[in-house]
Structure formats: structure tokens, C-alpha cells
Amino acid sequence: MKTPSNSLAAPTHVEESDTLDPPPGRITAAITDLVDGAGRWRIWLVLAMFDIRARYRRSRLGQFWITLSMAVTIAALALVYSVIFKIELAVYLPLVAISFIAWGLIASLLNDGATVFIESEGYLKSAPLPKSMFLYRMLARNTIIFAHNLILVPIVTLFFGIYPTWATLLFIPAFLLTMINGLWIGMVLGPLCTRFRDMPPIIASIVQIAFFASPVMWGRSQLGTGNEVWVMWNPFAVFLELMREPLLGKVPQAHWWLLAGAITVVGYAVGFAFFARFRSRIAYYL
């Protein structure tokens, strides 16, 4: 029997034909969220572009401040540390430029992953949007920022006589792999940091420490034999090496690719489980 379309009363018993399908499991809901979120690329692309525009609005240089401030930082670092480390500027500057730009992406994926849902509170509390949409927005925003910094790489390398090789093309998979890892980082840090508001500063501190512990300002060879092991198993160094070596015209060692692959697989196993478990709670945490 079909219930009349205008029936509203709370049913005391529910007829067979009216029982709702069992609610989708957490796993299904999480997959739906990730797929739906990707489908709304128009929204997260616009949001990402507005994020950048909002930051540099009413300034004459606009978003090219990203490029300029990075250039100034690199120049200052290179001048000081080439003297401290007693390395020729022509060798040190391209190295530190590329390292610092690649590090900037890694660090900001972590820091932004922590605040990804907190910054979107207004939207998440009033509109039924897939949570993953805000993860994609964060990735898109960081891609745009990274692209602005990347402009400096050909300028610096060509100036110091480092020419692209076939190995330079390996930068593309290295970059994509880094962004793919950015997604699971957001799936873990996003809900966690929304629930525990002490976490974003903790993440920021960890990233700061990792900066000094990773070969951004210094090269692996400077550690001396026996100490290299500290870098070889540093997850931050993995993605740094993978993006840096191709830009310097070199092929990254297989070691880094293998480690990056392992981090991706483990990261997604943990990240997906985390996202599936806590996705629906995010709205309550805000």
C-alpha cells in the first residue's frame, strides 16, 4: 500500500515498502564524499583562486608577491649560508633555491592540512557540501602558490648554467606524488586538528623542526658518512629529494621512489580509515 503523498505524521510502525535502505556504510559514504567533492571542481577552483586573490588584493604586484618574497628569501639565505658553509655561491644558490621552493610546498601542505576544515567553518556549517571539496581546494591553492614560486627555478638554474635534461621531466611525477600525499595528510590532520585545537600549533612546530632536520639548507653530503641514515629515512627528505633532483637535472635514486611509494600506500590506508571514521563528525567539531 502506498502512503498518500501528504502523510506527515511520525509513523508508529513502518510498512515494508516504506523502510528506507540501510544507511550507507562509512566506507561508502567516504568514497562518495571524495568522488562528489572532485566533481564539484568548479567550486573548489573558484575558492582556491579567491584565496590567492584575497591575500594580495589591493596590492599592485598582486599574487606575484609570492614570487618576489620567495626570491628575496632565497637570495638572503644563499648569501649568508654560502659564507657560513664555505660553499661557492654558484653552487649553493641554485641548490638552496630549489630546495626551499620544494620545501615550501611540503610545509604548506602540512600546515594547511591542519586548518583545512577550520578555515571553511562558514561553509561547512551551513551548506551540505562534500568535506573533500575543501581538501581539493587546499591542494589547488597550494598548486597555484607553488607555480608562482616555480617561476624562479628556470631563472636561477639557467643563470648558473644548469640546463634541463631528460631527467628534469621526472619532476612531474614527483610533484604529482607529493600532491597525492597532500590529500591523505589533509584527511588525517583535517579532522584531528578540528577536534583538537592545540594540534595546528603542534603541527607548525613539527614542520619547523623538520625544516632544520631535513636537507633544505644543507646537502646530504655535508653530514659525513655514517650520519646520512638520518636523512635517508626522513619522510620530509623523501619528497624533497624527489622534487629537487630532477630540477637540478639529475635522476633521483630508486631509494626515494620506493620510500615515497611506501609512504603513499601506508598514508592512504591510515588516512582513508581516519576520514571514513571522522568525516561525519567534522560538522560537530566546528
Binding site: 528506507l20 544507511p23 559514504a29 551551513s126 551548506a127 551540505p128 561525519s280 560538522a283 560537530y284
Partner: peptide
């Protein structure tokens, strides 16, 4: 009803 909150108990369609 707007889909902002996913209730832990009960079914929503």
C-alpha cells in the same frame, strides 16, 4: 534536513 549534520542514530534520505 539540509544535510549539514549526519545524525549518528536513525536514517535520513
Amino acid at each position: 534536513l539540509a544535510g549539514v549534520y549526519e545524525p549518528p542514530i536513525g536514517r535520513v534520505r
